[in-house]
Amino acid sequence: MNIFERLQHIDRRIMYALLVVAIAAPLIWRINLPVVVTPAVRGVYDTFDKMPADKIALIVVYWGAGTVAETGPETAAMMRQLFMQNKKFALLPFDPQGSKFATDSAKALAKEYGKKYGIDWVHWGYQPISNLVPLLQSFPGNIKGTFRTDAYGTPMDKIPMMRNVNTLRDIGVVADITSSGELDTWIAYVQATYRDAKGRYRVPMVYGPTAIIAPEGFNALDAGQIQGMLMGMKGAAEYEKLLSAEGFATRAAGALSTSHLLIVVLIILGNIGYVMSRRRGEG
């Protein structure tokens, strides 16, 4: 096997070993690379920024341990902005793991900013994802009737920040943070259809998907159905930059860079081998 054939058939174990090094090294030795804020991420920041203080944000958590590296920092950054700006939010998890991770993150941030459960944030309790459509049909018109208690069994009426939160109209922003593709369901059943005695209410939405499903979000972004989007860990790093609070996403962006570079280099090597072999009539 000549050099060009070798380049086309690099042992996958070598690639795996290189990937381990490419990911681990920047996490151990930090690399400072420029983080440029995209319009989609600025849209997320601006939407929360413009949210009236008398409304609450609804943070939908549909992710688990598998994607915590991407969606965890996204969730944390959104909660951080809300705490920084003295705005209130509710967590609505559709994944039991995500529920735990997001709650732990909220508790840590609440401690950092001196915020209290029930006054500044609330957990509406884990809901099975199989309930998504019926839940989205019932809760916008009757939040307390649908959820009744928070995650800890306290009736909604007894939670101070929930006293004046009754319908979707009391929610200023819905943030869908997800590793799955149920944004369309939220748009179809909540944003596009909700109406009450005061008329139509199109709740502003922002989106926090994993990078792999982010391309689908550009449809809704372009149509104005979502006002902003974080594209995985890179989006979270950009958001952290906007908040001037560098966290895990900013640190991990270096590892993301080196791993992407590795893939590019491997593809180039494979193609050099392929082209050269063809030129020599070996392909």
Partner: peptide, 27 residues
């Protein structure tokens, strides 16, 4: 256990992506 297993399962995809991208992207 549950969380760690979930994260491990998902992380292994990264290795397959590298291998698959290297083999699939040929001009």
């Amino acid at each position: 256990i549950v969380g760690a297993l979930g994260a491990t399962m998902f992380s292994t995809i990264g290795f397959y992506i590298v291998s698959a991208a290297y083999r699939a992207f040929r001009i």
